[in-house]
Amino acid sequence: MAEELHSLVAPYALDALDETDERSFEEHLALCERCRGELAGLREAAAALAYTAPATQPPPELKERILAQARSERPNVVPLRRKRNWTTTLGIAAAAAAAVAIGLGLWGATRSTGQDALARVLSRPGARVMAMGGSGVLAVAPDGEAALALRVADAPPGKTYEAWVIHANAARPAGLFRGAGVVKLARRVAKGSVVAVTVERAGGAPQPTQKPFLASQETT
């Protein structure tokens, strides 16, 4: 019976199971490490088949429709995202995703438009992701390597953003940046730290002179 279920992994990767088989396989998948491992690779190969259909421009109003609907759902979605476990889930599986990408060589690499600092941290085994207020995310690898991805307006003229790693009531500078994007933190983030961002005079400050307008929860 187990062999029978294992053998559904390829049709499942191709979405070629009927509802009954699909349900049985998903139940099996939750318990079977072997199938989860195989599925990751088979899915990458199956998704590659999408590239054999010619890319076709959808009508412009489709994008507007999708974005309008997404924005209208936002208030409902945000609280769900704060659920206890999602940070952990992201971290655990990041390593598996990285392994898959490596297995696929350049094929995997060319599909991402770049290896930014956040992606690099995410690819580390055991990396964790946390919300930075409602304005982005913080990713931290187990050794403390960390990156921020933020959506913020450019800093006002003569000002800069400064990131801080706050641990045991001491704030230490972790880098300056001008506006939105990905920032690699210049300082490692130990467990139990808070990462925060303030606006400082150009050139930065040795200690925060303002209240942070963005801060993470304590890292775990």
Partner: peptide, 30 residues
């Protein structure tokens, strides 16, 4: 120290240099 001050006004930004995975992380923060 951590009491939130109001953030600067948001502006559109260029996301073209972000990886697909980083974009998904941002999508996860709505």
């Amino acid at each position: 120290l951590l009491t939130a001050a109001p953030p600067p006004a948001k502006a559109p930004r260029n996301l073209a240099h972000l990886s697909d995975e980083s974009l998904l992380s941002l999508v996860a923060s709505s």
